[in-house]
Computed example of a mutant assay.
Amino acid sequence: MPARESLPLFPLHTVLLPGASLDLRVFERRYLDMVRDCGRSGRGFGVCMILEGGEAGAPAVPAAFGTEALIEDFGTDGGGLLTLQVRGNRRFHVSRTRVRDNGLIMADVEWREADLDDSLRPEHALLATVLQHFLEKAGGEHSKVSNARFDDVAWVGWRLAEFLPLEDAQRLRILQEDDPHARLDQLLRMMP
């Protein structure tokens, strides 16, 4: 049976994927308290795409799948707001939510199985080539990875889902898929 855990949620109008970096500005008291608690405990928080509602104000309705966000760096912007750089870690499925008095959504989550260490299949080799060419041109943190990464089915899938011009609903479908080979099949169908 998957491990269950309670996790604070930070619903956003985006999908955080495993391994992806995301910059956040935090200004609402509920999220400032959440960040403080995460810093004290050394734990992350959950990012789920918003299905209904907004990022600020009344608690939004989050998707049932999300990604644990680990804080990598923090600071303040020119206006004094807290800024965070987070990285997507483990995927989870929300089984139940409740809203605290301060408006913070707490979720009972089941962690999804970690991706298997598996190689690309021949039918997906083109996707690794597309990703490699894109990263060479775009630069950034993934542009200097070893060639071995381009044979890692899960890594190729997550990076393609991160960089392809997909709608958030499409990224959410990718996030929900447990089989990394099936993720690549979906990405092949979604490619422009």
Rank of each mutant, 00 (worst) to 15 (best):
L32I: 07
L32D: 06
M34P: 04
R36I: 00
D37H: 03
D37Q: 06
C38Y: 13
C38H: 12
G39I: 01
G39D: 12
S41T: 10
S41W: 02
S41H: 02
R43L: 03
G44F: 06
G44C: 08
G46Y: 07
G46D: 11
V47H: 02
V47A: 11
C48M: 09
M49H: 13
M49C: 13
L51F: 08
L51K: 15
L51W: 08
L51D: 12
E52M: 03
E52P: 07
G53I: 06
G53E: 07
G53F: 12
G53W: 09
G54T: 13
E55G: 08
E55H: 06
A56S: 14
A58W: 12
A60N: 11
V61C: 13
P62M: 11
P62D: 12
A63T: 05
A63N: 10
A64E: 15
F65G: 05
G66S: 09
G66V: 10
T67Y: 05
E68L: 00
E68H: 01
E68K: 01
A69P: 02
L70W: 12
L70K: 15
I71S: 03
I71H: 03
D73N: 12
D73L: 04
D73R: 15
F74W: 02
F74V: 02
G75D: 00
T76E: 12
D77Q: 00
G78C: 06
G79C: 00
G79T: 01
L81V: 03
T83Q: 03
L84G: 02
L84F: 07
Q85M: 05
Q85R: 13
Q85G: 05
R87S: 15
R87M: 15
N89K: 13
R90G: 05
R90S: 11
R90M: 04
R91N: 09
R91P: 06
H93T: 14
V94H: 08
S95A: 11
S95G: 08
S95P: 00
R96D: 00
V99H: 15
D101E: 14
D101I: 01
N102D: 15
N102Q: 10
L104M: 11
L104V: 04
I105G: 04
M106I: 11
W111E: 04
R112E: 13
R112C: 11
A114M: 09
A114F: 03
D115P: 06
D115Q: 06
L116C: 08
D118A: 14
L120M: 05
L120P: 05
L120D: 13
